[in-house]
Amino acid sequence: MTRMLLAAIIAAGLASTSALAQTASYEIMAPASPGGGWDQTARAMQTVMQDAGVAGDVQVVNVPGAGGTIGLAQFVQGKAGDPSALIVGGYVMVGAILTNNSPVSLEDVTPIARLTGEAEAIVVPAASPYQTIDDLAAAMRENPGAVAIAGGSAGGADHIAAGLFAEAVGADPTQINYIAFSGGGEALAAILGNQVAAGISGYGEFESQIEAGTMRLLAVTTDERIEGVDAPTLQEAGYDVSLENWRMVAAAPGITDEQAAQITADIEAMVQSDEWQETLERNNWVDTFLAGDEFRAELQQNIEDTREILTTIGLVSQ
């Protein structure tokens, strides 16, 4: 082997090693059971970051319970200073922190970016006597406690949507019969098993059942209809409710500004990739990407707005 050939092999090896060293590795915590919106988001991030070359290795771990606050507490306590640790959260977690009077909050992590928005969907089993959103509204108006509604954790977006809908139809929002589940899969089973009258969650969690005809979509909570989906918004149906669930990603507490900037750059590269745009379209997620100081200000405003709503529906005291 000539010296020139040996030098070329060594140089190629060093270049390869350098490239691998520059490729990040991440562990993303989905603070909920498999099958729900946070799990879907974390696993979409895992796939896209690897396929788009943003990260060399991405792992997802699930830590369910209490609207994400159990996972959040573990993340804060166990991942401080770790720039490879990420956690998915969002509107549900904001409400759960307030409802559960959680000892940890989003102030204890490093917010990176808001990623997506999604319509909340109000569904019933296919055999339900409630054919329209007006049918469900009439039943809730007559006796809100008799209409069991399945959704995610107490105080989250699903619970807030149920309370706002009850208020909009003229029912007492503090009297609704909301049954909280820690993961989307559990809520789905309760709805399909006719254990509840209705369900509320992100449209993406119900989409396959709606398309298969095992669930009936009555309405969505956003201002605009979902493209290609034949269901009214609550506003169209005459109920003054406007709500979009959103999801975010945060990094560990105690990381440096430089590490936060690198993580933000990686997330920006992910959301700008063709693979991410295809993921958004496939899941009917809206691109609501927002990072930096603008996101932190928006997050603080969301926390205050959510506190006001939860007070109104009786989940948080004055």
Rank of each mutant, 00 (worst) to 15 (best):
A154P: 13
V124W: 09
N177H: 11
G117I: 08
S84E: 07
V58C: 03
V92D: 15
V54C: 08
N143H: 01
N62K: 00
I191W: 00
Q175P: 02
A55E: 00
T174W: 01
E107T: 14
G183M: 11
G156E: 00
Y91W: 12
A113R: 14
L164V: 01
A55W: 01
A180W: 14
V60C: 06
V109F: 13
G95H: 15
A171Y: 03
L188T: 10
A148E: 15
S153L: 04
Y130M: 13
S105V: 00
A126K: 13
Q131S: 15
A85K: 02
P144M: 12
P111G: 14
V124F: 10
V169C: 03
F165H: 07
R114A: 08
L86I: 00
S84Q: 10
V94D: 15
N143D: 14
A96F: 12
S102N: 03
P125G: 00
V58P: 07
A187K: 11
A85C: 02
A171Q: 06
I112T: 01
S128K: 04
G78M: 09
S182C: 15
A138W: 06
I87N: 04
S182Y: 14
A55C: 00
A154Q: 15
K79N: 12
A85E: 03
G68F: 15
G145N: 07
I112K: 03
R114W: 10
G145E: 07
A161H: 09
G152E: 03
G156Q: 04
N62L: 01
A80W: 05
A190R: 07
V169N: 06
N101Q: 11
V88S: 06
E186D: 15
A171D: 01
I87C: 10
